[in-house]
Each structure stands twice: as C-alpha cells, then as structure tokens.
Design a protein around this nucleic acid. Structure first.
Lengths: 194, 194, 194, 194
DNA sequence: AATGAATGAGGATTCATTCAT
DNA sequence: AATGAATGAATCCTCATTCAT
C-alpha cells in the first residue's frame, strides 16, 4: 500500500481521511460505511481502495496522524521553555486548543480504546504523551516544585482532567475555551504542586 | 417488551446481560454478534429475543443498570457522612472500587460515547453523577473548604481524574488499587481545596 | 388433530378462528404471527397448538368454514323457489349480504388464491359455488329464459360481478348495500337473459 | 435508490423484476425469498440490493410497471375509436389479451390486495382503470346507448367480469382465449346496454 | 485513476413449533 | 388445558472488498 502519490493523489487521500474522520466521529466507526465516505465526496468506490488497503487501515492512519499532529502542536507550544511546570502548563493549553479545533477526532480516540485491533495503536500514542509529561514532572520534582509521587500516575491524572474537561465543555460546544482551559490548568497544577 | 418473568426468566435475562457485557467489553459492541452471546451461554438464538427487543436495547439496559449500580455503591459508601469534602472522597473511593470489580463495564461507557444512539443514555447517567458531586462541592464552598469556582467544572475534573486512573491502572490490571485510589484522592482534593 | 372438545373447548377454538380471521384479513396471513393471534386473546401459545396442528391448518379451517357458511346462507335464501332465474337472483343477494357481514373473510379468499398450498381448498369451494349457479342456468336455458351459452362461463361471470362489486363498494364501507346489490342483479341478469 | 444505470444495469434490473414476478406468481410473495430470485439468475445476493432497496420495493415496482403496461396496451387498442361502447369493448379485449400474455402478474394483483402495504398502490392503479371505463360509459349514456346508472358501479362490474373470466379460464390455461373474450364482451355489453 | 457492478460471508431478527412444568 | 421458555431454521439485509471496463 505504499504508493507514490502525485500532488493530486495526496490531496485525494487527505480528503478521504478528513471526510472519514468527520463521519466516524459523527456517527461512529461501524455505522459509517465505506460507501458513505466515498458518496460524501462524490467519487466511486474504487477510489477508496486505491488509497487505502482497508477501512481498518484508514482508521489507523487517521488515528496516527491525529496523534502526531497533537504532539507536534504541544511541542511547538512548549518550545524551549525552561521551567518544567510551565512546560506542563503550555502543553496542556496546547492540547485543549487542539481538541477545540479537532473535535471530530476526539471521539475516534474514545472508540479506538474499545476495540482490540485499534487499542494498541491508541495506547502507543498515549504512552508517548504520558512519557512527555512524565519527563517534565521528574524535572519538577528534582527542582522541588512538585509533590514526590509516582510521576506516571500524576501524568495520567493530568491528561484525565484535560480530556474530561475537553469532552464535556469543548466538544459539546457550550463552554468557553479560555475558562475551561484555565480551570484545567489550575486544577492540574494544584494536583501536582507541593 | 415488558414481560412478566418467572424466577428462572429473571435469571436468564441476567445471565444474558452479564455475558454480553463481558463480550462487548472484551471485543467491542459491533464485533460481538448476538450469536456469540447466546453461544457462550449454550442457548438458542431465540432466547435472546425473548428477553430483549434488540441488541441495541440490550446494550442500553446494560448501560443503565451499570450506572444505577455504580451510583448505589457511591451512596452506600457515603452514607450519612456530614463533611462535604469527606463525602466526595468516599464517593471517589467507592467509584474506584466499583471500577475494579466491574472492569468489563468500563469499556462500554467509552464505547457508548461514540455512537449517537447510545450517547444520550450515557450522558444522562453522567449528568446525575456530576450533579451528585456538584452538590457536595457547593456545600464545601459554603463552608469555605473549597476554592470558589464553577462547581460543575470541578466535578467533571474529578470524575476525569478518577476515570483516567481507573482506565490506565486498574483495568489493565497492573496497578495497585489502594495506591491508585489514594493518588486519585490526593490529586482531586488538592485540585479543589483552598 | 381430531380432538373431542368440551363445550368450552369448542368456544375457544371458535374464538381462535375468529380472531385469526380478523387479523389475517386486516394485515394479511404472513404478517400475522401465531403470537399475534394468541396475544389478542390473552392466552398462551400452547393453547393454539392444542386446537390446531399448525398455522396452515388453521387457515384452511377458516377457509372451509367460511365457504360452508356462505353456501348455507345461499341455500337458505333460495329455499324452494321454483323459478331458476329467481334462484340465481336470490343466491346472488344472499352472497352480497353475507359478504357485507363477513368482510374479514373476503380478503382471505383473495389471499388463498395466491399460494399453492391454499389454492386447492379455495378452488374446491369455488367449483361448488359455480356448479350451483350452473345448475340454475341450465334450468333457465331449458325454459328459454337464458341465452344459450356455456353455462360455466356465465356462472363465473356472475360471481365475478358479485365479487368485484362487493370488494369495491361493500368492503371499503362506502357503498350502500341495497343499491350495489340491485346493480349486481341487474347487470348479471342482463348478462344472461335472452 | 435513484441510481443512474448503464445499459447493462437496466438489463439486470429488468431481469430481476421478471424473474421475481414469475416466482412471486408461482409460489407467492412470502414463500419466495430474495435468495430464490438471485439464485434463479445465478447472481450474488448483493446484486438485488444494488437495484432495489428492499423486497417490498421490488414488489411495488413490479406492480406499478404491470399496471402501466396494461393501461398502455388498452390505450393502444382503443386508439381513436370514436364510438364509446366500441371503446369499452376494445379496452376489454386488450385487457384479456394482456392477461393471457402476462399470466404471472395476475396473481400479484390478487396478492397485493391482501396486505396493507401493497393495497394502496394496487388501488391507485385500479382507480385509474375504472376512471377510464367510466369516461366511456358517460359518453355512451349521453348518446343513449347505455342504461342510465351509476357509471362507476358499471365500470367495476365490467372489470369484475373480465377479471373473473381471465382468472378462471385463461390463467388455468384450459379456456380458449377468443371464446372467453367474446363471452366477456357479450356479458358486459348486455350488462350496460339499454 | 476511476466507475458501476458484483460478490458473498456475516449479522440481526422473526417465527412456527416444541418442551417442561 | 395452559403457560412461559426455548429452539433453530429461515429470511432480509449490510457492507467490506473485488472485478471488469
């Protein structure tokens, strides 16, 4: 399935991923058929299988691409900020902003967790995300800014807070991004600071 | 689908719900066929439809029943504890213990969020759970134990922490229940206390 | 399936046939399940199979019973009327009246014609009905009241007129029985008279 | 279900309708499964659902198409014949001929009357057919050729005669088309003429 | 690259019938 | 006589995938 794609080809592939992500998020993975996806783009079914080996592969591609994109966003936000706690905060804020801009994808993460064949991919990405935070936490502990506790547990707690707030207030569209983000930051930092 | 069931009937219905919950959790809702469920119990396919109108209805029943059961557990744990912050802690500990005992169901909550037809039921239960915590938080604010902030946001944050820690350390089976629970409590209380 | 039935038993059997006829007529034979029938009477499924060997047998019983009943009605109406044309008229009027009172059954005749396993039973009854008319027609021809033509064809034509008018004006409930009956008589007698 | 079909596609769709009509007529609608239809054509099951949304839709399509075809035949036969009674006769003869050539479809009309979901479509077509005859009858009454009576009743009677004779002598295959048609004409015209 | 058509295994559901009590 | 429960073959339909053009 490694194909050399022309510019137009890449564009098509991208369209398919976007449209599929939108539909998967809206209706769910299973209730969305390949036919639905290609129909939404007004193309034939052959197109789909030209770019993806299977529906499953498509989903995994979307998943990976989203995880990569989110991480890139976090790293860009953190830049070379030296203070570890501040790094955590910046990453958290970047995540929340990204969720707000990529609402569709959020549901896919949720779903991926529920099926054996997608869970590993999801987990892999999450471990990376956790590891990032863990690094900052360890730095913060060394500096004495942070309670001395299993950093992995703390990292998971932080992502849990972020995810929950995003899901409940951002995806439903009825919360103010800045307020929610501030709350996430306050809550999380209180949770870890000395 | 309202049927008066004999004792034996209730037993069967219960078996079906348990077995289905187990399989749905293990493989996912869609990859589990009705045939899989009845086969696992060694009964005919018709039995299923004697007790449930559809696979969809079964899932919703499982969902509701789990939500009710979890809440009962929380309320039993809280009892008549007068201190609001302590009430939150007791509820949180009860939730974590319940998750440990009902690992199967956790995935179902995750999945339910991803499909239109199940999301409302899930949301309804979550709103109740949030409302419970919100009540305690308001009491705590009045007493000055808790930071003065939108209590709904705080409640969501708390359930987010609990859920994330349960998912990552309890369901995978590689975390110590007490340690994780303590961490959840510490993190959450720091997150809300003055 | 020949059972000696108590008085109560006969009553039950009768109830089942009536209810089934009603439902079959209303929704069709196949869309009506045995469960529907027993439910409508508020009894268990076992009852049905106590009185009938199968759904198919039930239908045939209803069919035969209706045919017998209709014929009885015709013969009662004709009595010992001596004039053959008048006999035809009386029979026709009796049929129309019976259709008006047994609307439910009409559809069953229609349906029976469309399935191999019921068609023979239906045909048998219709042949008897046709033969009755044919006898009168032959008498009428002998007396010179009636055009000399294949009497079977004429008999079929008469029942066709009667059936069509009953179906279109009586079953739908928007025609006046007397007017329609008179029309059927006029049309039919013009059709056969010299 | 509106699809642009290629020539090959139209051909397939047509084959499916014909084969289904044949089987429905032979065995009945319900006893004929979709699997039976596609097997008879030696194609996969999916083909069916490429062309029809459901078995039900297919049946309705067959029904409509038959009604349209029959009417076309009648109109072609009538042409611009000026005499109203003669128009009725030509239409009747055309109907009988069409029935002889489309025996399969006749049963479908019968069956359609017995189920709620098909009855409306059938009725619609029949009303058109009746209206056609009614128009001729009114013309004939104006000209004084025809008894002055509710023309709708007369029209129904005529179609009743035609249908009954076709069913009893043509479909069973043991009657001579010309003889039966002549009889239908004679009977019907006597039924309406002054 | 792309399309309409075709495949066929798989899945949810129905329902006549039987069984245990 | 009667009931609730159970059976399982049969049916309609879906859909990921492949094929011919």
């Amino acid at each position: 399935m490694k194909r050399k794609l022309t510019a137009r080809g890449k564009e098509r592939r991208s369209q398919l991923m976007d449209e599929a992500a939108r539909l998967f998020a809206e209706r769910g993975y299973h209730p969305t058929s390949v036919a639905d996806v290609v129909e939404a783009l007004g193309v034939g079914k052959g197109v789909f299988y030209w770019y993806f080996a299977s529906k499953e592969e498509l989903f995994i591609e979307i998943l990976k691409s989203a995880q990569t994109d989110l991480r890139r966003r976090q790293q860009a936000a953190i830049g070379d900020e030296p203070h570890p706690v501040r790094r955590i905060e910046l990453g958290l804020r970047a995540s929340m902003a990204w969720f707000a801009e990529n609402r569709a994808v959020f549901n896919l993460f949720q779903f991926a967790a529920t099926e054996e064949r997608f869970a590993p991919t999801l987990r892999r990405g999450q471990e990376v995300a956790i590891a990032d935070v863990v690094r900052h936490l360890k730095d913060a502990m060394v500096d004495g800014h942070c309670r001395d506790q299993d950093p992995t547990i703390l990292a998971v707690a932080i992502t849990g807070v972020t995810g929950a707030l995003a899901r409940n207030f951002i995806l439903e569209g009825d919360g103010d991004l800045e307020t929610v983000t501030d709350a996430a930051v306050t809550f999380s930092l209180h949770g870890i600071l000395n």
